[in-house]
Design a protein around this nucleic acid. Sequence first.
DNA 1: AATAGAAGCGGACCATGGTCCGTTTAGGCG
DNA 2: CGCCTAAACGGACCATGGTCCGCTTCTATT
Lengths: 196, 196
Amino acid sequence: MTHLLPLADDPAPERADAARNREAILAAALRLVRTRGVGCVTMETVAAEAGVGKGTLFRRFESREGLMGAVLNESETAWQASVISGPPPLGPGAPPMERLLAFGHSRLRTNLTHAELIAAAGRPGARSAAALSFANMHVRYLLGELGVTGDLLMLATALLAPLEMVVLDQQVNTEHISLERIEAGWDDLVHRVVGR
Amino acid sequence: MTHLLPLADDPAPERADAARNREAILAAALRLVRTRGVGCVTMETVAAEAGVGKGTLFRRFESREGLMGAVLNESETAWQASVISGPPPLGPGAPPMERLLAFGHSRLRTNLTHAELIAAAGRPGARSAAALSFANMHVRYLLGELGVTGDLLMLATALLAPLEMVVLDQQVNTEHISLERIEAGWDDLVHRVVGR
DNA sequence: AATAGAAGCGGACCATGGTCCGTTTAGGCG
DNA sequence: CGCCTAAACGGACCATGGTCCGCTTCTATT
């Protein structure tokens, strides 16, 4: 092993034109999703709008789900930022319980807002596993602050699960449960899990 | 209102050939799914195997997801039966808490077993809303027996959510969490929700 | 600056889900 | 029993996601 090798060097540092295209595609996709709605955006349309060939789309984003996942990630990242460093009670500065409740409500709204995109992005794995487990991490941290003991990974998962789109979709669209009730239900769950 | 009208009469009592075909399709689909795996079953294949035209598939089952949902329902129904009238602790006869835990474990295994089919069946709505809310109903009932008070619909949803495939998939396939740990986590959740 | 080889490109092509509509058939009725 | 209508049928057809491979473009090297 040579001492000059930088560690964790990207095996293939992405060529300039490739980067340009990736950006163009993402921008085009975002634009089209905004204007026409997720359902009316075909891969061919995106390719045309970005001024690249269809093959390029698939090479960079693997599949339609992958592309939608990437688009989704844009907002997801912004959201993460506001959790990490935004104003309280969602961001730091408020007591843990308040933060936790704010977190749940915020996540709820966010998911509902991006419902279509989430559906189009399909199962996880498209969104980087890291991005997905961010929420879990954060909840775990807050539970720790609250002095909860036990298998925090599992508890965080349990708290997050009812906020998943599959569940929300069912509640909102077939059972017609109000947002307020869902929020209240989640708050109740939190209190039971934390143990007062 | 004439007194001769039977109540809740099916507006269109399904023609004989239609019924025959529906059964043939379902049987063919089940057979193919069993032998080739969900991923390798195309609508055309099913149509051929059932000896009907493709159009017929789509008329009776709406979409691929619909068909897969119908196939899934077969096993789902069997499972429901064993919950309602099978041997304890899953079926009646055991104390509520035992039943609830058994229920969770059973649901966990069942979902994992049918993972592919569930994915192929897509979002709910394909499976009748009734079938889907059966689990919720049952959990609500058991919570009642356990003397839990509060918004039971929400609590049941909270308990069921971590057993959804989206969540399980993530845990099993990307986080590589063992089945035992997931079960233990769920048991813990139940105890916290019920409040000892 | 020229060159070589890798990386990227793009559009023709394929597979499959989903639609449509002219034809066939069940089954109630005179 | 033969007719009539609504329902069901089926396969040609379309749209779109995804693959493939010959051609182009980048960039490291001399």
